[in-house]
Amino acid sequence: MSKKQKEMTNKPKITVSTIGLLIFFIVLAIIVLFPIFCITLAAFRPSKDLMRFGLNVEIDLAVMSFNNFIFLFTGENSYFMWFRNSLFITAVQAALTLIVSAVVGYGFAMYDFKYKNQIFMCVILIMMIPMEIIMLPLYQQIVGMKLIDTIWGIILPFIASPAPIFFFRQYLSGIPKELMEAGRIDGCSEYGIFGRIILPLMAPSFAAMGIFVGMNSWNGFLWPLIVLRSQEKFTLPIGLATLITPYGNNYDVLIAGSVIAILPILVVFLFFQQYFIEGMTAGGVKG
């Protein structure tokens, strides 16, 4: 509060730099949003135009139409099959990863046991190794387990994911251990304490991590590309990637589909911004 008052009293003195900063950031925001604006504009134009003239910002109402979107929704293409697959994998992966990682994070945060530090070092170890490096051994393991071309092949290796485990452990270390004692006195088992007392307290952290895991899953490319074989199981990013050809004959679906693919995550972002920011700053999400 006092900070705000100070800001108020300072205000008249600093108008020049305020306006300077404001203009600077407005220009920056326009530059940043420009590519998305361009692709959206292109989605309303015939895809042949894109092949002939390239992506640009000329607005010609005479040629603009909803045709690409109409074709996307009603025409002969696989887009919504991919969309459905992505939605399904994202939902299942986010739910399972959250539950499993929360359980593990709880174990690390609330108990003292033998080899705890050594095992936790393993969590840090794999958090610090990019998945791409071990994808060949991982792939062979998935082949050996006959999980190729299945959703489980995509989900299982990352079900106890180090970044969420780390995040949940941090989050839980703020919860007093007396709660567990109280639960034990009331006759709860160790699992009852987790399920009935701790889990409800974790709800806010679930939102942040749900968005973190969900976004990675929705946007994932390389691992699903390796695991999935049949066209009818492709996720949205893989499906869209197959549309890039030198002939550009699929550009109507590619462009309109790219715009529609951004939408769900943008809508979630607009409503749950603070959880995005929490989730992003909690663990490294690069790549």
Binding site: L28, V32, I36, C38, I39, L55, N219, F221, I262, I265
Partner: peptide, 23 residues
């Protein structure tokens, strides 16, 4: 501005690169 500058991170690498390939 914090939220606006963050929006590109919401696009997947596939969609973002498709856009830049055309740009």
């Amino acid at each position: 501005f914090r939220s606006t500058l963050f929006i590109p991170a919401l696009t997947s690498a596939v969609v973002a690169t498709t856009i830049f390939r055309l740009i």
